[in-house]
Design a binder for these strands. Structure first.
Length: 467
RNA sequence: GGUCCCUUCGUCUAUCGGUUAGGACAGCUGGUUUUCAUCCUGCAAAGGGGGGUUCGAUUCCCCCAGGGACCGCCA
Protein backbone atom coordinates (compact mmCIF):
# COMPACT_ATOMS: atom_id res chain seq x y z
CA UNK A 1 0.00 0.00 0.00
CA UNK A 2 1.45 3.30 -1.05
CA UNK A 3 1.69 6.22 1.28
CA UNK A 4 -1.60 7.99 1.86
CA UNK A 5 -2.09 11.20 -0.09
CA UNK A 6 -5.18 13.36 0.13
CA UNK A 7 -6.15 16.68 -1.30
CA UNK A 8 -8.53 19.57 -0.95
CA UNK A 9 -9.57 21.08 -4.25
CA UNK A 10 -11.50 24.34 -3.93
CA UNK A 11 -12.23 26.71 -6.75
CA UNK A 12 -11.05 30.22 -5.96
CA UNK A 13 -14.33 31.90 -6.74
CA UNK A 14 -15.08 33.32 -3.33
CA UNK A 15 -14.42 33.19 0.37
CA UNK A 16 -13.80 29.74 1.80
CA UNK A 17 -16.99 28.08 2.84
CA UNK A 18 -17.33 26.46 6.28
CA UNK A 19 -18.29 23.15 4.69
CA UNK A 20 -15.17 23.33 2.57
CA UNK A 21 -13.11 23.98 5.65
CA UNK A 22 -14.48 20.83 7.24
CA UNK A 23 -13.75 18.82 4.10
CA UNK A 24 -10.21 20.17 4.11
CA UNK A 25 -9.90 19.38 7.81
CA UNK A 26 -11.02 15.78 7.37
CA UNK A 27 -8.64 15.28 4.45
CA UNK A 28 -5.79 16.82 6.36
CA UNK A 29 -6.48 14.88 9.55
CA UNK A 30 -6.81 11.61 7.70
CA UNK A 31 -3.52 12.05 5.88
CA UNK A 32 -1.70 13.12 9.03
CA UNK A 33 -3.19 10.26 10.98
CA UNK A 34 -1.90 7.90 8.30
CA UNK A 35 1.47 9.63 8.19
CA UNK A 36 0.72 10.70 4.65
CA UNK A 37 0.61 13.97 2.79
CA UNK A 38 -2.10 16.55 2.20
CA UNK A 39 -2.20 18.64 -0.95
CA UNK A 40 -4.00 21.71 -2.11
CA UNK A 41 -5.28 21.97 -5.64
CA UNK A 42 -6.71 25.21 -6.92
CA UNK A 43 -9.41 24.53 -9.48
CA UNK A 44 -9.25 27.81 -11.31
CA UNK A 45 -10.40 26.78 -14.75
CA UNK A 46 -13.46 29.00 -14.56
CA UNK A 47 -11.56 32.05 -15.70
CA UNK A 48 -14.52 34.36 -15.30
CA UNK A 49 -14.98 33.78 -11.61
CA UNK A 50 -11.56 32.69 -10.38
CA UNK A 51 -9.50 35.32 -8.63
CA UNK A 52 -5.98 35.20 -7.31
CA UNK A 53 -7.01 37.06 -4.18
CA UNK A 54 -9.41 34.23 -3.39
CA UNK A 55 -6.63 31.71 -3.73
CA UNK A 56 -4.53 33.66 -1.27
CA UNK A 57 -7.51 33.97 1.04
CA UNK A 58 -8.14 30.22 0.94
CA UNK A 59 -4.57 29.40 1.87
CA UNK A 60 -4.67 31.99 4.64
CA UNK A 61 -7.95 30.65 6.01
CA UNK A 62 -6.70 27.08 6.09
CA UNK A 63 -3.58 28.21 7.87
CA UNK A 64 -5.66 30.19 10.32
CA UNK A 65 -7.48 27.06 11.41
CA UNK A 66 -4.27 25.06 11.58
CA UNK A 67 -4.10 23.34 8.21
CA UNK A 68 -1.04 23.57 6.00
CA UNK A 69 -0.66 21.70 2.76
CA UNK A 70 2.40 19.74 1.77
CA UNK A 71 4.35 20.91 -1.22
CA UNK A 72 3.42 23.59 -3.68
CA UNK A 73 -0.22 24.20 -4.45
CA UNK A 74 -1.27 22.52 -7.65
CA UNK A 75 -2.80 24.97 -10.08
CA UNK A 76 -5.30 23.25 -12.29
CA UNK A 77 -5.29 25.84 -15.07
CA UNK A 78 -1.61 25.11 -15.67
CA UNK A 79 -2.40 21.48 -16.44
CA UNK A 80 -5.05 21.97 -19.07
CA UNK A 81 -2.79 20.65 -21.83
CA UNK A 82 -2.45 17.38 -19.93
CA UNK A 83 -6.20 17.09 -19.64
CA UNK A 84 -6.68 17.70 -23.35
CA UNK A 85 -4.05 15.11 -24.12
CA UNK A 86 -5.94 12.51 -22.12
CA UNK A 87 -9.20 13.46 -23.81
CA UNK A 88 -7.61 12.78 -27.18
CA UNK A 89 -6.14 9.57 -25.93
CA UNK A 90 -9.57 8.42 -24.82
CA UNK A 91 -10.88 9.39 -28.21
CA UNK A 92 -8.23 7.35 -30.00
CA UNK A 93 -8.78 4.36 -27.77
CA UNK A 94 -12.45 4.43 -28.55
CA UNK A 95 -13.50 5.38 -25.03
CA UNK A 96 -14.83 8.71 -26.20
CA UNK A 97 -16.41 10.19 -29.28
CA UNK A 98 -17.20 13.48 -30.95
CA UNK A 99 -20.73 14.71 -30.52
CA UNK A 100 -22.06 17.17 -33.08
CA UNK A 101 -25.30 18.04 -31.38
CA UNK A 102 -25.90 21.76 -31.16
CA UNK A 103 -26.59 23.41 -27.85
CA UNK A 104 -30.08 24.20 -29.10
CA UNK A 105 -30.70 20.59 -29.98
CA UNK A 106 -29.75 19.47 -26.48
CA UNK A 107 -31.83 22.18 -24.87
CA UNK A 108 -34.79 21.06 -26.93
CA UNK A 109 -34.39 17.49 -25.75
CA UNK A 110 -34.16 18.56 -22.15
CA UNK A 111 -37.29 20.64 -22.48
CA UNK A 112 -39.20 17.78 -24.01
CA UNK A 113 -38.05 15.39 -21.30
CA UNK A 114 -39.23 17.81 -18.69
CA UNK A 115 -42.64 18.17 -20.31
CA UNK A 116 -43.09 14.44 -20.49
CA UNK A 117 -41.77 14.15 -16.95
CA UNK A 118 -39.25 11.58 -17.99
CA UNK A 119 -35.62 11.77 -16.88
CA UNK A 120 -33.36 13.51 -19.34
CA UNK A 121 -30.28 11.75 -20.46
CA UNK A 122 -28.29 12.52 -23.60
CA UNK A 123 -29.53 10.16 -26.27
CA UNK A 124 -26.03 9.03 -27.31
CA UNK A 125 -26.84 10.04 -30.88
CA UNK A 126 -23.24 10.37 -32.03
CA UNK A 127 -21.96 7.40 -30.11
CA UNK A 128 -22.48 5.23 -33.14
CA UNK A 129 -23.22 7.71 -35.91
CA UNK A 130 -20.60 7.90 -38.59
CA UNK A 131 -18.55 11.07 -38.51
CA UNK A 132 -19.03 11.44 -42.25
CA UNK A 133 -22.55 12.61 -41.49
CA UNK A 134 -21.32 15.36 -39.21
CA UNK A 135 -22.59 18.85 -39.91
CA UNK A 136 -19.79 21.14 -41.09
CA UNK A 137 -20.89 24.22 -39.15
CA UNK A 138 -20.85 22.63 -35.73
CA UNK A 139 -17.78 22.30 -33.55
CA UNK A 140 -18.11 19.00 -31.70
CA UNK A 141 -17.72 18.30 -28.00
CA UNK A 142 -16.05 15.13 -26.86
CA UNK A 143 -18.15 12.79 -24.79
CA UNK A 144 -17.03 9.85 -22.71
CA UNK A 145 -18.48 6.50 -23.73
CA UNK A 146 -20.12 5.60 -20.46
CA UNK A 147 -21.17 2.04 -19.69
CA UNK A 148 -24.71 1.23 -20.68
CA UNK A 149 -25.15 -2.32 -19.46
CA UNK A 150 -25.05 -3.61 -15.92
CA UNK A 151 -24.39 -2.02 -12.58
CA UNK A 152 -21.44 -0.31 -10.96
CA UNK A 153 -20.55 -0.63 -7.34
CA UNK A 154 -18.64 1.86 -5.25
CA UNK A 155 -17.10 0.77 -1.99
CA UNK A 156 -17.38 4.05 -0.20
CA UNK A 157 -15.31 4.34 2.96
CA UNK A 158 -18.03 6.33 4.71
CA UNK A 159 -21.29 5.36 3.06
CA UNK A 160 -20.60 1.70 2.47
CA UNK A 161 -21.49 -0.02 -0.78
CA UNK A 162 -23.37 2.10 -3.28
CA UNK A 163 -24.74 0.48 -6.38
CA UNK A 164 -26.05 2.25 -9.42
CA UNK A 165 -27.38 1.21 -12.81
CA UNK A 166 -24.92 2.23 -15.47
CA UNK A 167 -27.57 3.39 -17.90
CA UNK A 168 -28.53 6.22 -15.56
CA UNK A 169 -25.18 7.84 -16.21
CA UNK A 170 -25.04 9.71 -19.46
CA UNK A 171 -22.20 10.07 -21.91
CA UNK A 172 -20.78 13.10 -20.16
CA UNK A 173 -18.76 15.77 -21.91
CA UNK A 174 -15.04 15.73 -21.24
CA UNK A 175 -13.97 18.37 -23.77
CA UNK A 176 -16.06 21.42 -24.64
CA UNK A 177 -16.46 22.64 -28.18
CA UNK A 178 -13.91 25.35 -27.48
CA UNK A 179 -11.42 22.59 -26.72
CA UNK A 180 -11.29 23.09 -22.94
CA UNK A 181 -11.67 20.18 -20.53
CA UNK A 182 -14.59 19.83 -18.13
CA UNK A 183 -14.50 19.18 -14.41
CA UNK A 184 -14.79 15.41 -14.37
CA UNK A 185 -11.91 14.99 -16.78
CA UNK A 186 -9.64 17.56 -15.17
CA UNK A 187 -10.25 16.39 -11.64
CA UNK A 188 -9.58 12.78 -12.56
CA UNK A 189 -6.39 13.49 -14.48
CA UNK A 190 -5.14 15.75 -11.72
CA UNK A 191 -5.95 13.31 -8.95
CA UNK A 192 -4.10 10.63 -10.87
CA UNK A 193 -1.08 12.78 -11.64
CA UNK A 194 -0.96 14.01 -8.06
CA UNK A 195 -0.94 10.39 -6.89
CA UNK A 196 -3.97 10.71 -4.68
CA UNK A 197 -4.80 7.56 -2.75
CA UNK A 198 -7.96 8.76 -0.99
CA UNK A 199 -10.55 11.21 -2.23
CA UNK A 200 -12.55 12.61 0.67
CA UNK A 201 -15.22 15.06 -0.46
CA UNK A 202 -18.83 16.10 -0.01
CA UNK A 203 -21.42 13.56 -0.99
CA UNK A 204 -22.73 15.93 -3.62
CA UNK A 205 -19.91 14.42 -5.71
CA UNK A 206 -21.19 10.86 -5.52
CA UNK A 207 -22.48 10.71 -9.11
CA UNK A 208 -19.28 12.33 -10.35
CA UNK A 209 -17.37 9.53 -8.73
CA UNK A 210 -19.11 6.95 -10.88
CA UNK A 211 -18.12 8.97 -13.94
CA UNK A 212 -14.57 9.48 -12.81
CA UNK A 213 -14.00 5.85 -11.96
CA UNK A 214 -14.79 4.99 -15.56
CA UNK A 215 -12.05 7.34 -16.71
CA UNK A 216 -9.55 5.70 -14.36
CA UNK A 217 -10.55 2.34 -15.72
CA UNK A 218 -10.38 3.41 -19.36
CA UNK A 219 -6.88 4.72 -18.75
CA UNK A 220 -5.89 1.67 -16.71
CA UNK A 221 -5.00 3.89 -13.80
CA UNK A 222 -5.17 2.81 -10.18
CA UNK A 223 -8.53 3.84 -8.80
CA UNK A 224 -8.21 5.66 -5.49
CA UNK A 225 -10.39 5.05 -2.45
CA UNK A 226 -13.40 7.30 -2.06
CA UNK A 227 -15.11 8.65 1.03
CA UNK A 228 -18.16 10.84 0.61
CA UNK A 229 -18.98 12.83 3.68
CA UNK A 230 -22.48 14.13 4.36
CA UNK A 231 -23.00 17.81 3.74
CA UNK A 232 -23.48 20.40 6.40
CA UNK A 233 -27.02 21.68 6.50
CA UNK A 234 -28.49 24.95 7.60
CA UNK A 235 -30.95 25.05 10.48
CA UNK A 236 -33.65 24.75 7.83
CA UNK A 237 -32.09 21.49 6.69
CA UNK A 238 -30.79 22.58 3.31
CA UNK A 239 -27.32 22.34 1.85
CA UNK A 240 -25.24 25.19 3.18
CA UNK A 241 -24.29 27.63 0.47
CA UNK A 242 -22.20 30.73 0.26
CA UNK A 243 -25.32 32.80 0.21
CA UNK A 244 -26.31 31.68 3.69
CA UNK A 245 -25.37 33.95 6.56
CA UNK A 246 -22.54 32.80 8.69
CA UNK A 247 -21.19 30.38 6.16
CA UNK A 248 -17.66 31.64 5.62
CA UNK A 249 -14.73 31.46 8.00
CA UNK A 250 -14.62 35.20 8.17
CA UNK A 251 -18.16 35.30 9.53
CA UNK A 252 -16.84 33.48 12.58
CA UNK A 253 -13.47 35.08 12.98
CA UNK A 254 -15.00 38.53 12.87
CA UNK A 255 -17.15 37.90 15.92
CA UNK A 256 -14.16 36.56 17.80
CA UNK A 257 -14.36 32.81 17.40
CA UNK A 258 -10.88 31.37 17.89
CA UNK A 259 -9.39 29.02 15.30
CA UNK A 260 -8.89 26.15 17.72
CA UNK A 261 -12.48 26.33 18.89
CA UNK A 262 -13.87 26.34 15.39
CA UNK A 263 -11.54 23.54 14.40
CA UNK A 264 -12.76 21.48 17.35
CA UNK A 265 -16.38 22.24 16.56
CA UNK A 266 -16.01 21.32 12.91
CA UNK A 267 -14.21 18.13 13.85
CA UNK A 268 -17.10 17.00 16.03
CA UNK A 269 -19.71 18.01 13.46
CA UNK A 270 -20.37 14.71 11.78
CA UNK A 271 -17.51 12.87 13.40
CA UNK A 272 -17.16 11.38 16.84
CA UNK A 273 -14.77 9.44 18.97
CA UNK A 274 -16.65 7.85 21.86
CA UNK A 275 -17.85 10.59 24.18
CA UNK A 276 -14.87 12.83 23.75
CA UNK A 277 -15.76 16.42 22.97
CA UNK A 278 -12.53 18.38 23.32
CA UNK A 279 -9.61 17.56 21.06
CA UNK A 280 -6.31 19.34 20.90
CA UNK A 281 -4.81 19.50 17.43
CA UNK A 282 -2.53 16.57 18.24
CA UNK A 283 -5.34 14.52 19.71
CA UNK A 284 -7.47 15.07 16.66
CA UNK A 285 -4.67 13.78 14.43
CA UNK A 286 -4.14 10.83 16.71
CA UNK A 287 -7.79 9.78 16.89
CA UNK A 288 -9.18 10.75 13.51
CA UNK A 289 -10.55 7.97 11.36
CA UNK A 290 -13.08 7.53 8.60
CA UNK A 291 -15.17 5.08 10.62
CA UNK A 292 -16.14 7.83 13.00
CA UNK A 293 -17.80 9.89 10.29
CA UNK A 294 -21.59 9.77 10.48
CA UNK A 295 -23.76 9.04 7.48
CA UNK A 296 -26.42 11.66 7.98
CA UNK A 297 -26.03 15.36 7.32
CA UNK A 298 -25.60 17.59 10.34
CA UNK A 299 -26.88 21.04 11.08
CA UNK A 300 -24.76 24.00 11.97
CA UNK A 301 -25.50 25.11 15.53
CA UNK A 302 -24.28 28.53 16.54
CA UNK A 303 -24.82 28.01 20.26
CA UNK A 304 -22.45 25.07 20.18
CA UNK A 305 -19.84 27.05 18.32
CA UNK A 306 -20.11 29.76 20.93
CA UNK A 307 -19.91 27.38 23.86
CA UNK A 308 -16.92 25.63 22.31
CA UNK A 309 -15.27 28.99 21.93
CA UNK A 310 -16.15 29.85 25.51
CA UNK A 311 -14.57 26.62 26.65
CA UNK A 312 -11.34 27.46 24.86
CA UNK A 313 -11.36 31.00 26.20
CA UNK A 314 -11.67 29.68 29.74
CA UNK A 315 -9.15 26.90 29.47
CA UNK A 316 -6.25 28.02 27.31
CA UNK A 317 -3.31 29.79 28.86
CA UNK A 318 -3.72 33.53 29.28
CA UNK A 319 -0.68 34.13 27.12
CA UNK A 320 -2.30 32.27 24.25
CA UNK A 321 -5.60 33.96 24.84
CA UNK A 322 -3.86 37.30 24.75
CA UNK A 323 -2.20 36.44 21.46
CA UNK A 324 -5.58 35.57 19.99
CA UNK A 325 -7.06 38.77 21.36
CA UNK A 326 -4.29 40.96 19.98
CA UNK A 327 -4.68 39.45 16.55
CA UNK A 328 -8.43 39.76 16.66
CA UNK A 329 -8.41 43.38 17.76
CA UNK A 330 -5.84 44.43 15.22
CA UNK A 331 -7.91 42.99 12.38
CA UNK A 332 -11.47 43.68 13.42
CA UNK A 333 -11.37 46.35 16.12
CA UNK A 334 -8.54 48.66 17.00
CA UNK A 335 -4.97 47.84 17.85
CA UNK A 336 -4.37 47.52 21.55
CA UNK A 337 -2.14 50.44 22.53
CA UNK A 338 1.15 49.51 24.06
CA UNK A 339 0.44 51.31 27.33
CA UNK A 340 -2.69 49.17 27.80
CA UNK A 341 -1.01 45.85 27.14
CA UNK A 342 0.02 45.04 30.68
CA UNK A 343 -3.31 46.06 32.12
CA UNK A 344 -5.27 43.93 29.66
CA UNK A 345 -2.99 40.97 30.01
CA UNK A 346 -3.16 40.94 33.79
CA UNK A 347 -6.92 41.39 33.71
CA UNK A 348 -7.69 38.53 31.36
CA UNK A 349 -8.30 36.16 34.23
CA UNK A 350 -11.54 37.95 35.06
CA UNK A 351 -12.37 39.55 31.70
CA UNK A 352 -12.68 36.10 30.18
CA UNK A 353 -15.16 34.93 32.79
CA UNK A 354 -17.99 36.67 31.09
CA UNK A 355 -16.97 36.08 27.53
CA UNK A 356 -18.04 33.65 24.87
CA UNK A 357 -16.02 35.40 22.16
CA UNK A 358 -12.96 37.55 21.75
CA UNK A 359 -15.34 40.34 20.89
CA UNK A 360 -16.92 39.93 24.33
CA UNK A 361 -13.50 40.25 25.93
CA UNK A 362 -12.83 43.33 23.87
CA UNK A 363 -16.14 44.83 24.97
CA UNK A 364 -15.55 43.88 28.60
CA UNK A 365 -12.16 45.52 28.43
CA UNK A 366 -13.53 48.67 26.89
CA UNK A 367 -13.24 50.60 30.14
CA UNK A 368 -9.53 49.84 30.25
CA UNK A 369 -8.96 50.45 26.56
CA UNK A 370 -10.68 53.83 26.56
CA UNK A 371 -8.84 56.76 28.09
CA UNK A 372 -12.13 58.55 28.58
CA UNK A 373 -15.05 56.77 30.23
CA UNK A 374 -18.11 56.58 28.02
CA UNK A 375 -21.06 56.98 30.36
CA UNK A 376 -24.42 55.41 29.98
CA UNK A 377 -26.78 58.35 30.67
CA UNK A 378 -29.33 56.33 32.59
CA UNK A 379 -26.68 54.82 34.79
CA UNK A 380 -25.17 58.23 35.44
CA UNK A 381 -28.47 59.37 36.91
CA UNK A 382 -28.02 56.79 39.67
CA UNK A 383 -25.26 58.90 41.14
CA UNK A 384 -26.98 61.14 43.62
CA UNK A 385 -25.59 63.45 46.30
CA UNK A 386 -25.04 60.66 48.76
CA UNK A 387 -23.21 58.65 46.14
CA UNK A 388 -20.98 61.58 45.42
CA UNK A 389 -20.07 61.83 49.06
CA UNK A 390 -19.14 58.17 49.04
CA UNK A 391 -17.08 58.62 45.95
CA UNK A 392 -15.32 61.58 47.45
CA UNK A 393 -14.58 59.71 50.62
CA UNK A 394 -13.29 56.73 48.68
CA UNK A 395 -11.11 59.04 46.65
CA UNK A 396 -9.56 60.47 49.79
CA UNK A 397 -8.94 57.05 51.21
CA UNK A 398 -7.13 55.54 48.28
CA UNK A 399 -5.09 58.65 47.74
CA UNK A 400 -3.26 57.64 50.88
CA UNK A 401 -2.47 54.18 49.60
CA UNK A 402 0.83 53.28 47.99
CA UNK A 403 -0.59 50.69 45.69
CA UNK A 404 -3.96 49.03 45.31
CA UNK A 405 -4.65 45.49 46.32
CA UNK A 406 -7.66 43.70 47.58
CA UNK A 407 -6.49 43.47 51.18
CA UNK A 408 -6.21 47.21 51.43
CA UNK A 409 -9.35 48.01 49.49
CA UNK A 410 -11.69 45.72 51.34
CA UNK A 411 -11.58 47.53 54.70
CA UNK A 412 -12.09 50.84 52.97
CA UNK A 413 -15.20 49.65 51.20
CA UNK A 414 -16.53 48.00 54.34
CA UNK A 415 -16.06 51.18 56.33
CA UNK A 416 -17.90 53.17 53.70
CA UNK A 417 -20.79 50.72 53.89
CA UNK A 418 -20.90 51.12 57.63
CA UNK A 419 -20.47 54.88 57.77
CA UNK A 420 -23.05 55.59 55.14
CA UNK A 421 -25.46 52.98 56.47
CA UNK A 422 -25.82 51.24 53.16
CA UNK A 423 -25.01 47.88 51.60
CA UNK A 424 -22.37 46.80 49.11
CA UNK A 425 -24.51 47.88 46.23
CA UNK A 426 -24.82 51.38 47.69
CA UNK A 427 -21.08 51.78 47.50
CA UNK A 428 -20.20 49.46 44.67
CA UNK A 429 -22.64 50.63 42.11
CA UNK A 430 -21.70 54.33 42.06
CA UNK A 431 -18.02 53.46 42.00
CA UNK A 432 -18.51 51.00 39.20
CA UNK A 433 -20.41 53.57 37.16
CA UNK A 434 -17.83 56.26 37.68
CA UNK A 435 -14.95 53.97 36.80
CA UNK A 436 -16.45 52.10 33.87
CA UNK A 437 -19.46 54.09 32.71
CA UNK A 438 -21.88 51.26 33.33
CA UNK A 439 -23.54 49.56 36.27
CA UNK A 440 -22.72 46.21 34.74
CA UNK A 441 -19.23 44.92 34.61
CA UNK A 442 -16.53 42.96 36.35
CA UNK A 443 -16.25 42.74 40.12
CA UNK A 444 -15.50 46.04 41.78
CA UNK A 445 -12.13 45.04 43.15
CA UNK A 446 -11.12 43.70 39.77
CA UNK A 447 -12.06 47.01 38.17
CA UNK A 448 -10.14 49.09 40.64
CA UNK A 449 -7.03 46.96 40.56
CA UNK A 450 -7.06 46.60 36.79
CA UNK A 451 -7.16 50.36 36.31
CA UNK A 452 -4.48 51.16 38.82
CA UNK A 453 -4.31 54.01 41.28
CA UNK A 454 -3.61 56.82 38.82
CA UNK A 455 -6.49 56.01 36.50
CA UNK A 456 -8.90 55.45 39.38
CA UNK A 457 -8.12 58.81 40.94
CA UNK A 458 -8.29 60.54 37.60
CA UNK A 459 -11.72 59.04 36.86
CA UNK A 460 -13.11 59.74 40.31
CA UNK A 461 -11.84 63.28 40.15
CA UNK A 462 -13.52 63.94 36.88
CA UNK A 463 -16.96 63.16 38.26
CA UNK A 464 -16.36 64.96 41.52
CA UNK A 465 -15.40 68.11 39.64
CA UNK A 466 -18.71 68.17 37.85
CA UNK A 467 -20.44 69.81 40.81
C1' G B 1 -39.98 13.23 -12.53
C1' G B 2 -35.37 9.77 -12.37
C1' U B 3 -31.08 7.97 -9.58
C1' C B 4 -28.59 7.67 -5.03
C1' C B 5 -28.13 8.63 0.22
C1' C B 6 -29.97 9.51 5.14
C1' U B 7 -33.53 8.86 9.74
C1' U B 8 -31.55 8.01 18.37
C1' C B 9 -33.44 13.95 23.10
C1' G B 10 -34.44 20.93 20.06
C1' U B 11 -28.91 20.33 18.23
C1' C B 12 -24.06 17.29 17.80
C1' U B 13 -23.74 12.37 19.00
C1' A B 14 -22.63 7.16 22.09
C1' U B 15 -24.56 2.18 21.62
C1' C B 16 -21.36 -2.33 17.08
C1' G B 17 -28.68 -8.10 19.63
C1' G B 18 -29.76 -8.09 26.15
C1' U B 19 -28.32 -0.78 28.92
C1' U B 20 -32.83 2.50 34.08
C1' A B 21 -30.80 4.13 25.80
C1' G B 22 -25.09 7.42 27.92
C1' G B 23 -22.53 12.25 27.11
C1' A B 24 -22.16 17.37 25.34
C1' C B 25 -24.63 22.12 23.89
C1' A B 26 -29.10 24.65 24.37
C1' G B 27 -33.60 24.82 27.93
C1' C B 28 -35.63 24.74 32.93
C1' U B 29 -34.84 24.27 38.49
C1' G B 30 -31.99 25.19 43.07
C1' G B 31 -27.37 26.93 45.46
C1' U B 32 -22.80 30.16 45.85
C1' U B 33 -22.03 35.39 44.53
C1' U B 34 -20.91 42.17 44.60
C1' U B 35 -24.19 44.02 39.50
C1' C B 36 -23.78 41.09 34.87
C1' A B 37 -21.49 36.59 34.61
C1' U B 38 -18.73 32.39 36.16
C1' C B 39 -19.05 28.06 39.12
C1' C B 40 -21.70 23.98 41.42
C1' U B 41 -26.85 20.67 42.29
C1' G B 42 -30.70 18.78 39.99
C1' C B 43 -34.80 18.24 36.20
C1' A B 44 -36.92 17.52 31.63
C1' A B 45 -35.94 15.68 26.80
C1' A B 46 -34.95 10.60 21.75
C1' G B 47 -34.77 5.36 18.64
C1' G B 48 -40.43 8.17 11.98
C1' G B 49 -44.36 4.15 10.97
C1' G B 50 -45.40 -1.01 9.65
C1' G B 51 -43.84 -5.88 8.85
C1' G B 52 -40.35 -9.76 9.51
C1' U B 53 -35.56 -12.63 11.67
C1' U B 54 -34.63 -13.83 16.89
C1' C B 55 -35.66 -16.27 23.39
C1' G B 56 -34.73 -10.89 22.82
C1' A B 57 -34.32 -5.67 18.62
C1' U B 58 -32.47 1.29 18.51
C1' U B 59 -29.03 -2.37 16.63
C1' C B 60 -30.00 -7.34 11.14
C1' C B 61 -33.65 -7.66 6.63
C1' C B 62 -38.00 -5.72 3.80
C1' C B 63 -41.86 -2.06 2.82
C1' C B 64 -43.75 2.80 3.58
C1' A B 65 -43.28 7.83 5.08
C1' G B 66 -40.27 12.07 5.72
C1' G B 67 -35.76 14.65 4.65
C1' G B 68 -31.46 15.50 1.55
C1' A B 69 -28.02 15.38 -2.70
C1' C B 70 -27.35 14.96 -7.85
C1' C B 71 -29.58 15.21 -12.69
C1' G B 72 -24.66 22.00 -16.66
C1' C B 73 -20.33 22.63 -22.82
C1' C B 74 -20.03 25.23 -13.29
C1' A B 75 -16.59 23.21 -10.18
Amino acid sequence: MSKVATRFAPSPTGALHIGGVRTALFNWLFSKNQKGTFHLRIEDTDKERSKDEHKIQIIKSLKWIGIEHDGEEYIQSQKIEDHIKIANELLQKGNAYKCYCSVEEIEEQKKRAKQKKIPYIYNRKWRDTDEKDAPKDIKPVIRFKSKIEGNSKLKDLVQGDIEIENNTIEDFIILRNDGTPTYNLSATVDDHQMGMTHIIRGDDHKINTFKQIQIYQAMSWIVPEFAHIPLIHTIEGKKLSKRDNASTLDDYSKIGIMPDALRNYLLRLGWSYQDKEIFTLDESIQHFNLEGIGKSPSKLDMSRILSMNEHYIKTIHDNDLYKNLVEYCSIYKEKIKSDKETKIKSSLYFLKNKAKTLEDIFNNAQYILDDEVKFNEDDLKLIDEKAKKIINEFNNQINKLENLDRNKLEPIINNLIKNYETNFKGVGQPLRIVLTGSKFGPGLYDIIISLGKDDVIQRLGKVLKQN
